[in-house]
């Protein structure tokens, strides 16, 4: 039966290894019926963008708890654009102060989920906003 499955990537850019949230989320996405590619920790934006294209995911969820999101999140979006993959949605999560939201939205991050966001709300957001390619 033809069926477009939602494919997502959970990625951890930067050097922090706090992957509790990313891993819990990856499992939760699987249980929501998505196919989830997980990159592991310590990824460069280049690795993430290139993996996202190779895997043809609809969405990349970036998790960063080190404060480097201001540099790393926009870089991923920019690289995807350069590689002609601006249709891949990028969302972010982690320790991100509200004052950084505008610059991240401006840079093309479509949604930001911070500590305490319920997993269901993230899944809901994806189901509402992502039409598989």
């Amino acid at each position: 039966m033809p069926e477009r499955k939602i494919r997502v990537m959970v990625a951890k850019p930067g050097l922090d290894g706090h992957d509790r949230g990313a891993r819990v989320l990856a499992r939760y996405f699987r249980d929501a019926g998505f196919e989830v590619v997980y990159t592991g920790c310590h990824q460069t934006p280049e690795q993430i963008a290139s993996a996202a294209i190779q895997e043809d995911v609809d969405l990349v969820g970036l998790s960063c708890l080190s404060g480097a999101h201001r540099a790393l999140f926009p870089k991923v979006v920019q690289l995807l654009r350069e590689k002609g993959a601006s249709d891949i949605t990028v969302i972010g999560g982690g320790i991100i102060p509200e004052q950084d939201f505008p610059m991240l939205y401006e840079a093309g991050i479509k949604a930001i989920f911070t500590p305490g966001a319920s997993l269901d709300s993230i899944v809901e957001w994806i189901k509402t906003n992502i039409k598989p390619h």
Partner: peptide
């Protein structure tokens, strides 16, 4: 049960991503 999957093999190959 859910039809979902975690595709984790590529983690170990990520150094070739670029």
């Amino acid at each position: 049960f859910t039809g979902g999957a975690i595709l984790g093999d590529r983690i170990r190959m990520q150094r070739h991503a670029e």
